[in-house]
Protein backbone atom coordinates (compact mmCIF):
# COMPACT_ATOMS: atom_id res chain seq x y z
CA UNK A 1 0.00 0.00 0.00
CA UNK A 2 2.66 2.50 -0.95
CA UNK A 3 0.06 4.13 -3.14
CA UNK A 4 -1.94 5.36 -0.18
CA UNK A 5 -0.64 8.90 -0.46
CA UNK A 6 -1.83 9.02 -4.03
CA UNK A 7 -5.41 8.41 -2.99
CA UNK A 8 -7.45 11.49 -3.74
CA UNK A 9 -8.73 11.72 -0.18
CA UNK A 10 -5.30 11.41 1.36
CA UNK A 11 -4.32 15.06 1.44
CA UNK A 12 -7.71 16.44 2.54
CA UNK A 13 -7.92 13.84 5.30
CA UNK A 14 -4.34 14.48 6.34
CA UNK A 15 -5.09 18.19 6.58
CA UNK A 16 -8.21 17.55 8.65
CA UNK A 17 -6.43 15.16 11.01
CA UNK A 18 -3.53 17.57 11.40
CA UNK A 19 -5.94 20.32 12.33
CA UNK A 20 -7.65 18.10 14.87
CA UNK A 21 -4.34 16.99 16.37
CA UNK A 22 -3.05 20.55 16.60
CA UNK A 23 -6.26 21.58 18.26
CA UNK A 24 -6.32 18.75 20.75
CA UNK A 25 -2.71 19.42 21.74
CA UNK A 26 -3.27 23.15 22.05
CA UNK A 27 -6.51 22.80 23.95
CA UNK A 28 -7.15 19.40 25.43
CA UNK A 29 -10.82 20.27 25.87
CA UNK A 30 -11.20 20.22 22.11
CA UNK A 31 -11.80 16.49 22.06
CA UNK A 32 -13.88 16.45 25.22
CA UNK A 33 -17.49 15.53 24.73
CA UNK A 34 -19.80 15.99 27.68
CA UNK A 35 -23.17 14.40 28.16
CA UNK A 36 -26.00 16.51 29.50
CA UNK A 37 -29.55 15.20 29.65
CA UNK A 38 -28.52 12.42 27.31
CA UNK A 39 -27.30 14.94 24.72
CA UNK A 40 -23.75 15.37 23.58
CA UNK A 41 -21.95 18.68 23.79
CA UNK A 42 -18.42 19.81 22.92
CA UNK A 43 -16.28 21.55 20.33
CA UNK A 44 -16.48 18.64 17.91
CA UNK A 45 -20.26 18.48 18.20
CA UNK A 46 -20.41 22.22 17.53
CA UNK A 47 -18.37 21.76 14.39
CA UNK A 48 -20.75 19.06 13.15
CA UNK A 49 -23.80 21.16 14.00
CA UNK A 50 -22.56 24.49 12.64
CA UNK A 51 -21.27 23.01 9.43
CA UNK A 52 -24.74 21.97 8.26
CA UNK A 53 -25.54 24.98 6.02
CA UNK A 54 -22.10 25.00 4.41
CA UNK A 55 -22.29 21.23 4.00
CA UNK A 56 -25.56 21.41 2.07
CA UNK A 57 -24.42 24.27 -0.15
CA UNK A 58 -21.07 22.61 -0.84
CA UNK A 59 -22.75 19.34 -1.82
CA UNK A 60 -24.83 21.14 -4.43
CA UNK A 61 -21.79 23.11 -5.55
CA UNK A 62 -19.89 19.84 -6.04
CA UNK A 63 -22.37 18.59 -8.60
CA UNK A 64 -22.57 21.96 -10.37
CA UNK A 65 -18.78 22.16 -10.57
CA UNK A 66 -18.65 18.58 -11.88
CA UNK A 67 -20.65 19.78 -14.92
CA UNK A 68 -18.01 22.49 -15.54
CA UNK A 69 -20.25 25.08 -13.95
CA UNK A 70 -20.37 27.22 -10.86
CA UNK A 71 -23.23 28.60 -8.78
CA UNK A 72 -22.60 32.01 -7.27
CA UNK A 73 -26.20 32.52 -6.25
CA UNK A 74 -26.36 30.05 -3.36
CA UNK A 75 -25.92 32.72 -0.70
CA UNK A 76 -28.70 34.81 -2.20
CA UNK A 77 -30.94 31.75 -2.45
CA UNK A 78 -30.30 31.07 1.24
CA UNK A 79 -31.39 34.61 2.03
CA UNK A 80 -34.57 34.22 -0.02
CA UNK A 81 -35.51 30.86 1.44
CA UNK A 82 -34.94 32.07 5.00
CA UNK A 83 -37.03 35.13 4.29
CA UNK A 84 -39.84 33.05 2.81
CA UNK A 85 -39.89 30.61 5.72
CA UNK A 86 -39.90 33.34 8.32
CA UNK A 87 -42.56 35.34 6.52
CA UNK A 88 -44.86 32.32 6.31
CA UNK A 89 -44.42 31.55 10.00
CA UNK A 90 -44.68 35.19 10.99
CA UNK A 91 -47.88 35.57 9.01
CA UNK A 92 -49.62 32.58 10.53
CA UNK A 93 -51.86 32.64 13.59
CA UNK A 94 -49.95 29.91 15.31
CA UNK A 95 -46.19 30.23 14.81
CA UNK A 96 -45.52 27.45 17.28
CA UNK A 97 -47.54 24.91 15.35
CA UNK A 98 -45.55 22.09 13.76
CA UNK A 99 -47.81 22.14 10.71
CA UNK A 100 -47.15 25.82 10.13
CA UNK A 101 -43.41 25.25 10.29
CA UNK A 102 -43.63 22.32 7.89
CA UNK A 103 -45.58 24.40 5.40
CA UNK A 104 -43.09 27.23 5.77
CA UNK A 105 -40.14 24.95 5.14
CA UNK A 106 -41.75 23.30 2.11
CA UNK A 107 -42.68 26.65 0.58
CA UNK A 108 -39.17 28.02 1.19
CA UNK A 109 -37.52 25.02 -0.43
CA UNK A 110 -39.92 25.16 -3.38
CA UNK A 111 -39.03 28.80 -3.96
CA UNK A 112 -35.35 27.83 -3.84
CA UNK A 113 -36.04 25.08 -6.37
CA UNK A 114 -37.58 27.61 -8.74
CA UNK A 115 -34.54 29.87 -8.37
CA UNK A 116 -32.22 26.94 -9.07
CA UNK A 117 -34.28 26.05 -12.13
CA UNK A 118 -33.92 29.64 -13.32
CA UNK A 119 -30.11 29.37 -13.08
CA UNK A 120 -30.23 26.06 -14.89
CA UNK A 121 -32.36 27.57 -17.62
CA UNK A 122 -29.86 30.36 -18.24
CA UNK A 123 -26.94 27.95 -18.34
CA UNK A 124 -28.30 24.81 -19.98
CA UNK A 125 -30.83 26.31 -22.37
CA UNK A 126 -29.60 29.81 -23.16
CA UNK A 127 -25.97 28.72 -22.99
CA UNK A 128 -24.83 31.64 -20.84
CA UNK A 129 -21.53 31.23 -19.00
CA UNK A 130 -22.31 29.83 -15.52
CA UNK A 131 -20.41 32.55 -13.63
CA UNK A 132 -22.37 35.26 -15.36
CA UNK A 133 -25.71 33.50 -15.34
CA UNK A 134 -25.65 32.92 -11.61
CA UNK A 135 -24.27 36.39 -10.96
CA UNK A 136 -27.68 37.78 -11.92
CA UNK A 137 -29.42 36.00 -9.08
CA UNK A 138 -26.51 36.66 -6.74
CA UNK A 139 -27.18 40.36 -7.24
CA UNK A 140 -30.95 40.36 -7.40
CA UNK A 141 -31.64 37.56 -4.91
CA UNK A 142 -30.84 39.58 -1.82
CA UNK A 143 -33.03 42.35 -3.11
CA UNK A 144 -35.88 39.87 -3.40
CA UNK A 145 -35.21 38.63 0.13
CA UNK A 146 -35.22 42.18 1.43
CA UNK A 147 -38.53 42.83 -0.27
CA UNK A 148 -40.06 39.69 1.24
CA UNK A 149 -39.04 40.70 4.73
CA UNK A 150 -39.93 44.31 4.04
CA UNK A 151 -36.39 45.38 4.73
CA UNK A 152 -36.54 44.39 8.37
CA UNK A 153 -34.93 41.53 10.17
CA UNK A 154 -38.00 39.39 10.76
CA UNK A 155 -37.78 37.48 13.99
CA UNK A 156 -40.08 34.74 15.17
CA UNK A 157 -40.51 32.72 18.27
CA UNK A 158 -41.39 29.23 17.17
CA UNK A 159 -40.18 26.18 19.01
CA UNK A 160 -40.49 23.72 16.11
CA UNK A 161 -38.64 26.14 13.85
CA UNK A 162 -35.80 26.66 16.30
CA UNK A 163 -35.55 22.91 16.65
CA UNK A 164 -34.22 22.62 13.06
CA UNK A 165 -30.93 24.26 13.94
CA UNK A 166 -30.70 23.98 17.70
CA UNK A 167 -32.67 20.88 18.60
CA UNK A 168 -31.35 17.45 19.41
CA UNK A 169 -32.58 14.21 17.92
CA UNK A 170 -31.72 11.65 20.54
CA UNK A 171 -28.07 12.34 21.39
CA UNK A 172 -26.95 14.49 18.46
CA UNK A 173 -28.05 17.84 16.97
CA UNK A 174 -30.89 17.62 14.46
CA UNK A 175 -28.94 19.78 11.97
CA UNK A 176 -26.25 17.13 11.90
CA UNK A 177 -28.84 14.58 10.81
CA UNK A 178 -29.92 16.89 8.01
CA UNK A 179 -26.32 16.98 6.80
CA UNK A 180 -26.01 13.22 7.02
CA UNK A 181 -29.31 12.70 5.23
CA UNK A 182 -28.26 15.02 2.41
CA UNK A 183 -24.87 13.35 2.07
CA UNK A 184 -26.43 9.90 2.06
CA UNK A 185 -29.21 10.81 -0.36
CA UNK A 186 -26.82 12.49 -2.76
CA UNK A 187 -24.28 9.67 -2.61
CA UNK A 188 -27.06 7.18 -3.20
CA UNK A 189 -28.55 9.02 -6.17
CA UNK A 190 -25.24 9.83 -7.79
CA UNK A 191 -23.55 6.51 -7.24
CA UNK A 192 -26.40 4.00 -7.30
CA UNK A 193 -27.92 5.41 -10.44
CA UNK A 194 -25.97 6.38 -13.53
CA UNK A 195 -26.37 10.09 -12.78
CA UNK A 196 -22.93 10.46 -11.25
CA UNK A 197 -21.04 8.91 -14.10
CA UNK A 198 -23.08 10.75 -16.74
CA UNK A 199 -22.48 14.02 -14.89
CA UNK A 200 -18.76 13.31 -14.87
CA UNK A 201 -18.80 12.40 -18.54
CA UNK A 202 -20.49 15.71 -19.41
CA UNK A 203 -18.02 17.59 -17.25
CA UNK A 204 -14.91 15.85 -18.56
CA UNK A 205 -15.68 15.85 -22.24
CA UNK A 206 -18.92 17.52 -23.32
CA UNK A 207 -18.37 16.80 -27.01
CA UNK A 208 -17.59 13.12 -26.57
CA UNK A 209 -20.65 12.86 -24.34
CA UNK A 210 -22.82 14.52 -26.95
CA UNK A 211 -21.61 12.13 -29.62
CA UNK A 212 -22.22 9.23 -27.24
CA UNK A 213 -25.83 10.35 -26.97
CA UNK A 214 -25.81 11.73 -23.43
CA UNK A 215 -28.61 14.24 -22.83
CA UNK A 216 -26.40 16.80 -21.19
CA UNK A 217 -28.96 19.60 -21.03
CA UNK A 218 -31.10 17.80 -18.49
CA UNK A 219 -28.09 16.80 -16.44
CA UNK A 220 -26.74 20.33 -16.24
CA UNK A 221 -30.14 21.79 -15.51
CA UNK A 222 -30.70 19.24 -12.77
CA UNK A 223 -27.40 20.16 -11.13
CA UNK A 224 -28.47 23.78 -10.71
CA UNK A 225 -31.89 22.73 -9.40
CA UNK A 226 -30.20 20.50 -6.84
CA UNK A 227 -27.87 23.31 -5.84
CA UNK A 228 -30.85 25.62 -5.43
CA UNK A 229 -32.80 23.15 -3.31
CA UNK A 230 -29.87 22.42 -1.01
CA UNK A 231 -29.18 26.16 -0.64
CA UNK A 232 -32.86 26.56 0.24
CA UNK A 233 -32.60 24.02 3.05
CA UNK A 234 -29.36 25.68 4.19
CA UNK A 235 -31.20 29.00 4.31
CA UNK A 236 -33.90 27.50 6.52
CA UNK A 237 -31.27 26.12 8.92
CA UNK A 238 -29.49 29.46 9.02
CA UNK A 239 -32.73 31.32 9.73
CA UNK A 240 -33.69 28.78 12.37
CA UNK A 241 -30.33 29.21 14.06
CA UNK A 242 -30.69 32.97 14.49
CA UNK A 243 -34.51 32.68 14.76
CA UNK A 244 -34.69 35.45 12.20
CA UNK A 245 -34.41 36.26 8.53
CA UNK A 246 -31.50 38.57 7.84
CA UNK A 247 -31.55 39.21 4.12
CA UNK A 248 -28.17 40.93 4.16
CA UNK A 249 -26.16 38.55 6.28
CA UNK A 250 -27.71 35.18 5.46
CA UNK A 251 -25.34 33.11 3.39
CA UNK A 252 -22.93 35.98 2.87
CA UNK A 253 -19.73 34.66 1.25
CA UNK A 254 -21.02 31.11 1.56
CA UNK A 255 -20.58 30.55 -2.19
CA UNK A 256 -16.90 31.29 -1.75
CA UNK A 257 -16.49 28.93 1.19
CA UNK A 258 -18.47 26.25 -0.62
CA UNK A 259 -16.23 26.51 -3.69
CA UNK A 260 -13.23 26.33 -1.41
CA UNK A 261 -14.62 23.21 0.30
CA UNK A 262 -15.15 21.54 -3.06
CA UNK A 263 -11.63 22.36 -4.21
CA UNK A 264 -10.13 21.26 -0.90
CA UNK A 265 -11.96 17.99 -1.33
CA UNK A 266 -10.07 17.29 -4.50
CA UNK A 267 -12.74 18.07 -7.10
CA UNK A 268 -11.21 20.07 -9.91
CA UNK A 269 -12.81 23.38 -10.85
CA UNK A 270 -12.34 22.29 -14.45
CA UNK A 271 -15.21 19.86 -13.94
CA UNK A 272 -15.45 16.12 -14.27
CA UNK A 273 -14.60 13.66 -11.54
CA UNK A 274 -16.13 14.70 -8.26
CA UNK A 275 -15.88 13.37 -4.77
CA UNK A 276 -18.75 13.74 -2.33
CA UNK A 277 -16.59 12.35 0.46
CA UNK A 278 -13.93 14.87 -0.46
CA UNK A 279 -16.37 17.75 -0.21
CA UNK A 280 -17.52 16.50 3.20
CA UNK A 281 -13.93 16.50 4.37
CA UNK A 282 -13.39 19.92 2.80
CA UNK A 283 -16.33 21.36 4.70
CA UNK A 284 -15.07 19.88 7.95
CA UNK A 285 -11.62 21.34 7.30
CA UNK A 286 -13.08 24.79 6.78
CA UNK A 287 -15.27 24.53 9.85
CA UNK A 288 -12.42 23.20 12.01
CA UNK A 289 -10.03 25.83 10.67
CA UNK A 290 -12.60 28.49 11.51
CA UNK A 291 -12.92 27.09 15.02
CA UNK A 292 -9.14 26.96 15.37
CA UNK A 293 -8.71 30.53 14.25
CA UNK A 294 -11.32 31.57 16.77
CA UNK A 295 -9.54 29.58 19.47
CA UNK A 296 -6.24 31.25 18.63
CA UNK A 297 -7.89 34.46 19.69
CA UNK A 298 -7.96 35.85 16.18
CA UNK A 299 -11.12 37.85 15.65
CA UNK A 300 -13.36 35.93 13.27
CA UNK A 301 -13.43 38.94 10.96
CA UNK A 302 -9.74 38.41 10.27
CA UNK A 303 -10.10 34.75 9.42
CA UNK A 304 -10.40 35.42 5.67
CA UNK A 305 -6.64 35.98 5.64
CA UNK A 306 -6.13 32.35 6.64
CA UNK A 307 -8.58 31.17 4.03
CA UNK A 308 -6.86 33.28 1.41
CA UNK A 309 -3.58 31.58 2.23
CA UNK A 310 -5.30 28.18 2.00
CA UNK A 311 -6.81 29.04 -1.39
CA UNK A 312 -3.51 30.27 -2.77
CA UNK A 313 -1.64 27.19 -1.55
CA UNK A 314 -4.27 24.82 -2.93
CA UNK A 315 -4.48 26.43 -6.37
CA UNK A 316 -0.74 26.77 -6.69
CA UNK A 317 -0.18 23.15 -5.76
CA UNK A 318 -2.88 22.12 -8.25
CA UNK A 319 -1.50 24.31 -11.04
CA UNK A 320 -0.01 22.63 -14.12
CA UNK A 321 3.24 24.53 -13.66
CA UNK A 322 3.87 23.17 -10.18
CA UNK A 323 2.61 19.72 -11.10
CA UNK A 324 4.97 19.57 -14.02
CA UNK A 325 7.83 20.59 -11.77
CA UNK A 326 6.84 17.96 -9.22
CA UNK A 327 6.25 15.41 -11.96
CA UNK A 328 9.70 15.85 -13.43
CA UNK A 329 11.14 15.47 -9.95
CA UNK A 330 9.38 12.24 -9.14
CA UNK A 331 9.33 10.91 -12.71
CA UNK A 332 5.69 10.14 -12.71
CA UNK A 333 3.82 9.37 -15.89
CA UNK A 334 2.51 12.42 -17.70
CA UNK A 335 -0.84 13.41 -16.31
CA UNK A 336 -3.77 14.02 -18.58
CA UNK A 337 -4.71 17.42 -17.33
CA UNK A 338 -6.18 20.09 -19.53
CA UNK A 339 -3.00 21.85 -20.63
CA UNK A 340 -1.72 18.58 -21.98
CA UNK A 341 -4.56 18.43 -24.44
CA UNK A 342 -2.61 20.79 -26.58
CA UNK A 343 0.11 18.22 -26.79
CA UNK A 344 -2.20 15.53 -27.98
CA UNK A 345 -3.13 17.80 -30.80
CA UNK A 346 0.38 18.03 -32.14
CA UNK A 347 -0.19 14.85 -34.06
CA UNK A 348 -3.00 16.55 -35.94
Amino acid sequence: MTQIWKHRLFWPLAALITLIVVNSVARPRFLTITVRDGQLYGALIDILRNSAPLMLVALGMTIVIATRGIDLSVGAIMAVSGAVALTVIDGSNDPGNLGTVLVAVVVAVLVALVLGAWNGFLVAVLGIQPIIATLVLMLAGRGVALLITGGFITTVNSAPFSYIASGYLTVLPFAFFISVAAIAALALVERRTALGVLTEAVGINPEASRLAGVRSRGIVWGAYILSGVLAGVAGVIYASNIKAADANAAGLFIELYAILAVVLGGTSLAGGKFSIAGTVVGVLIIQTLGSTILFLGVPSAQSPVFFAVVVVVVVVVQSPRVRRALGSMTRRRPSTTAPDQERTKVAA
Partner: peptide
Amino acid sequence: LVQYFNVQPFIASLAGLFLARGLAFVVSL
Protein backbone atom coordinates in the same frame (compact mmCIF):
# COMPACT_ATOMS: atom_id res chain seq x y z
CA LEU B 1 -1.86 33.45 -10.11
CA VAL B 2 -3.90 33.87 -13.27
CA GLN B 3 -1.06 34.15 -15.73
CA TYR B 4 1.65 31.92 -14.32
CA PHE B 5 -0.30 29.35 -12.36
CA ASN B 6 -3.26 28.97 -14.71
CA VAL B 7 -5.71 29.76 -11.93
CA GLN B 8 -9.11 30.85 -13.16
CA PRO B 9 -9.49 34.62 -12.70
CA PHE B 10 -12.58 33.98 -10.65
CA ILE B 11 -10.74 31.84 -8.10
CA ALA B 12 -7.56 33.90 -8.08
CA SER B 13 -9.46 37.11 -7.41
CA LEU B 14 -11.53 35.25 -4.82
CA ALA B 15 -8.29 34.62 -2.94
CA GLY B 16 -7.57 38.33 -3.34
CA LEU B 17 -11.01 39.11 -1.91
CA PHE B 18 -10.43 36.95 1.15
CA LEU B 19 -6.95 38.33 1.66
CA ALA B 20 -7.93 41.98 1.36
CA ARG B 21 -11.03 41.61 3.52
CA GLY B 22 -9.09 39.78 6.21
CA LEU B 23 -6.25 42.26 6.09
CA ALA B 24 -8.73 45.09 6.46
CA PHE B 25 -9.81 43.58 9.76
CA VAL B 26 -6.21 42.90 10.71
CA VAL B 27 -5.52 46.61 10.36
CA SER B 28 -8.49 47.52 12.49
CA LEU B 29 -11.66 45.84 13.63
